[in-house]
Design a protein around this nucleic acid. Sequence first.
DNA 1: TAAATTGTTATCCATTTGGTTAAGTTATAT
DNA 2: ATATAACTTAACCAAATGGATAACAATTTA
Lengths: 106, 106
Amino acid sequence: MDNNLHQSFQALGDPTRLAVLEQLLKGPASVSDLAKPHPMALPAFTKHLGVLERAGLITSHKSGRVRTCAIDPAGLSALDRWFTDRRAMWEGRLDRLQTHLNAKKD
Amino acid sequence: MDNNLHQSFQALGDPTRLAVLEQLLKGPASVSDLAKPHPMALPAFTKHLGVLERAGLITSHKSGRVRTCAIDPAGLSALDRWFTDRRAMWEGRLDRLQTHLNAKKD
DNA sequence: TAAATTGTTATCCATTTGGTTAAGTTATAT
DNA sequence: ATATAACTTAACCAAATGGATAACAATTTA
């Protein structure tokens, strides 16, 4: 299995981008609206949007002179599933059974 | 709410560290055991372990000359919850209601 | 048509990151 | 007592990252 998952995690590994995502969860927004809370110049900010988009966490389309961004549910679901698929393994209750089964697989 | 969550996400934003975490989900392991699959010198590898530990995703203790690492369930649960707490917001079913409520809050 | 909005492109810069090698340190094994 | 194993510390390096400015489109708006 070839994981490119780390790219999505890396996209979340920055406070600005995490905040942008939280804001987009409330609904789509334009670049400049998204940028407002963040104390940096636009070119720096749009780079962050690029990272999120390349990571598959947001989508965007330009209409006239305004680009509107929105959450990409597929990207977030993929990350969410990474955790749900592994939750039992760190939560302890199934640890002994799980690790035993995994050991057999090696 | 002061998020240091991005630090944990950043820790997962590297293929080596993601692989280490997957391996540790199978059970605790020593540094050199963990390092074996990864084609890099030990100092580089232990830096990755340091990142994971500072991010609260793994713990470790040294016994004799061998350091044993293990998953830190609290760290993984925190990340997991970030997604589960937001799942409804990107899954669409509640989107209209959710965004409407959030709009009222602003 | 002129001016203002809303991005975009191009360069540049300091810092962080992910790696290296060399030289220790501390336990265990012979 | 020596050698080996399992890290650690220190110093260094290239490349990626997160930021800045300046200049340039391309729409609206007045």
